[in-house]
């Protein structure tokens, strides 16, 4: 059991962090993922890769927390309350920060499908199995998420550097 947790903790925690955006929430969701998985280990076909199943549980845990967040008022840091434009503009110049912001704006199911594909390197078939939706739906979600992120980066003006880099190739 310990070996299983040790082996997959990075990917599960990473997905939870991407989905939830907060370290403690991600830690709690990842812990709950492994607890649920270990309690149901007897029902799993161990011949198959266990990672998609773990990520599916993690996705469910994260979606539950996101729904709970949407139902109750949330604490926001003072900086976000006052909307300091200069800080926001400065952060907008940072590509990494902009990608992170863009991910936060995606729909939950779109973000999960996108991260499972691009970060966890799962195939469309595996993602469809994980999310229990048709493969065509997964493709649509990933494409829409990608399109939204590209538009976000274009609006934020962080593409120029990449354009120059591509031209140099």
């Amino acid at each position: 059991m310990r070996a299983l947790v040790h082996r997959y903790q990075g990917n599960v925690f990473g997905l939870c962090y991407r989905m939830l955006g907060r370290y403690h929430d991600a830690e709690d969701a990842a812990q709950e993922t492994f607890v649920r998985a270990l309690r149901n280990l007897a029902k799993v076909d161990l011949e198959r890769d266990i990672e998609p199943w773990l990520l599916a549980i993690a996705g469910n845990c994260c979606r539950t927390r996101l729904m709970q967040r949407s139902r109750r008022p949330e604490y926001l840091p003072l900086v976000e309350d006052v909307g300091d434009a200069s800080i926001e503009e400065e952060a907008g110049r940072d590509l990494t920060e902009e990608v992170r912001l863009g991910l936060g704006k995606l729909r939950d199911d779109h973000r999960q499908a996108f991260l499972l594909f691009h970060e966890q390197q799962l195939s469309y078939i595996e993602i469809a199995d994980v999310l229990n939706v048709p493969m065509g739906t997964v493709k649509t979600w990933v494409h829409r998420a990608r399109q939204t992120l590209i538009e976000h980066l274009q609006q934020r003006g962080v593409v120029e550097e990449s354009r120059n880099a591509v031209r140099k190739l």
Partner: peptide
């Protein structure tokens, strides 16, 4: 250029351990 930026950004967005 935008998709190239996105791919670079995704790589640089590291998940904490």
């Amino acid at each position: 250029a935008s998709q190239a930026a996105l791919r670079r950004g995704l790589v640089s967005v590291e998940s904490p351990e």
